[in-house]
Design a protein around this nucleic acid. Structure first.
Lengths: 162, 162
DNA sequence: CTAAACCCCGTACTCGACTACAGAGTCAAG
DNA sequence: CTTGACTCTGTAGTCGAGTACGGGGTTTAG
């Protein structure tokens, strides 16, 4: 990621929050927010209280972003980070987390595929049908005879634990 | 779902909110909420104001639930419902919506698959590596040399429109 | 030296999809 | 007739991941 060209000459320059934000492509407020969540602590502060981040902050941020993308919530990420910072190997914890996430991912993948198929089928149906008016075009009903009883209504992630 | 066995003898019996809730497996509050959102209006009210739903309410709810599962937001669904109730064929609108959703779905599917692969790879790496402590186990970094630069950081659905 | 640009903190707001609660009225069984 | 289950309205709270704002202090370029 274009970051291996500088190695000598830069003795871990400290960045102010705005620079980090710009470099990482996140908002300043997000950085402060991450700090509150224990996700990314500036390595120092100036006399006057300005946050100063080491360049590793960018890596850390990347870690956060990528973990997020992989389906972890900020609090999970925070937990991992905390573990790791406590010197304890977060590996087993993290591994469990990851295993679980993989399982969830598989489920969601399957679901999404099913939905995709349904949508496509529905669409086809309409296309060949011309315009029936009124009634909602039978959007979903009867595309599938087995009523797949969707269990994760919350398509976003992680149905709320009832 | 098991609803074609009653056809004669039941002159579209009216259901009270609690019955609908039970039959549909949603909370009463959710039904009232849906009503506020224009998603499901009871067909009548009693003198005293009790909501009375026809049996089609169950179908409608199913429609809502399934549309949701297919990735539509409640407001999109409401729009569709409104269109259809206005007598105008929502089909073209809906078709566009659906086409778009399919595209989005494909993207998400691809993304998820990629993430899945990454996760699995990471996990493998750990498994073969034993426990390194400190540092976050290289959770993500360097699993993939091409830095897939994730564009939809918001994995939930529909990155906020910048 | 001054003004613009940057940064601080704390609080409050956003959005989506609900859920909870308070206080009051209604309905069916015993 | 009373009790308890059910329903009404309206407002408020939840969760996640931030964003926005107000009222300051600080740094830096000109």
């Amino acid at each position: 990621m274009s970051g291996s060209a500088m190695k000598a000459g830069t003795p871990a320059r400290l960045l102010k929050i705005g620079e980090v934000a710009k470099l990482a492509g996140v908002g300043i407020e997000a950085l402060r927010f991450y700090e509150r969540q224990g996700l990314l602590t500036p390595s120092t502060r100036t006399e006057s209280g300005y946050r100063l981040y080491g360049e590793d902050a960018l890596e850390q941020l990347d870690f956060v972003r990528r973990s997020q993308a992989l389906g972890f919530s900020l609090s999970e990420i925070a937990a991992i980070v905390a573990e790791s910072r406590a010197g304890r190997k977060p590996c087993s914890t993290v591994r469990d987390l990851v295993r679980q996430r993989i399982r969830e991912l598989d489920d969601r993948l399957a679901e999404l595929k099913r939905y995709r198929r349904e949508l496509a089928k529905t669409l086809e149906g309409w296309e060949s049908l011309g315009d029936v008016k009124g009634h909602v075009c039978g959007l979903i009903e009867s595309t599938d005879a087995q009523s797949p009883r969707l269990q994760s209504r919350k398509i976003g992630r992680k149905a709320n634990v009832d």
